[in-house]
């Protein structure tokens, strides 16, 4: 499918970003050390950001880095270091029975789905701005406007629902993590 319609820089950008994503993803699974796994995850996230830039979605790319690489993975690292997770985790033990079989089925279904999509349309080939047949909808600074309009009009409900979900999650986490100090004091005395 990748033919004369694509310029060489496009193909190069795609190959580089795809390599970063795949190598990073494999790294997350294959590496034993949790901190190294988090580093591999960052590689994947940067690969995705590169892919976004190649599709002239600059804004999404930079948000990807700010939110995921800049905040979420740092939190992962924080938890890993704070809990002092062992340098290597035993992977031979299977905590959920039948997990491996289910995972295998999941992999087969996902790959099958991707191949089916690839065969029927060009949704997964990295074609530029699929919905508008090759022309990016909004370039450069127009990105922010396009994303903002979409989020606050068409997808308003989904956006607000996500916000509510996050707030609920935060409140829940605080409630779970809170300790009653008074009980401690009485215990001491």
């Amino acid at each position: 499918m990748i033919g004369a319609a694509y310029a060489i820089p496009d193909i190069l950008a795609f190959v580089v970003s795809a390599l970063m994503i795949v190598v990073g993803a494999i790294g997350v699974l294959a590496v034993r050390n949790p901190v190294h796994a988090a580093l591999s995850l960052i590689l994947t996230l940067f690969g995705v950001a590169t892919a976004f830039v190649a599709q002239s979605a600059d804004f999404l790319a930079v948000v990807q880095i700010i939110v995921y690489a800049g905040a979420i993975v740092v939190l992962f690292l924080f938890v890993i270091m704070f809990l002092g997770v062992d340098r290597s985790d035993p992977v031979r033990v299977e905590p959920l029975v039948g997990q491996r079989a289910l995972a295998a089925i999941g992999v087969v279904v996902t790959i099958g789905g991707l191949v089916a999509l690839l065969a029927s349309s060009h949704w997964v080939t990295g074609a530029i701005a699929v919905s508008t047949s090759g022309h990016p909808t909004a370039v450069g600074a127009g990105n922010v406007r396009a994303v903002g309009t979409a989020v606050f009009t068409t997808y308003l409900f989904a956006f607000e629902a996500t916000a509510a979900l996050l707030i609920i999650a935060v409140v829940g986490a605080v409630q779970l993590a809170r300790r009653e100090r008074r009980m401690d004091r009485e215990g001491e005395a």
């Binding site: 960052i42 880095i65 690489a69």
Partner: peptide, 22 residues
């Protein structure tokens, strides 16, 4: 002068945490 401008600064200050943490 990238179109994302100041966001690049935010992204980079997000990344600079890794130097210290790692």
């Amino acid at each position: 002068n990238p179109p994302i401008g100041v966001l690049l600064m935010l992204a980079m200050s997000g990344i600079s945490v890794y130097g210290v943490v790692l």
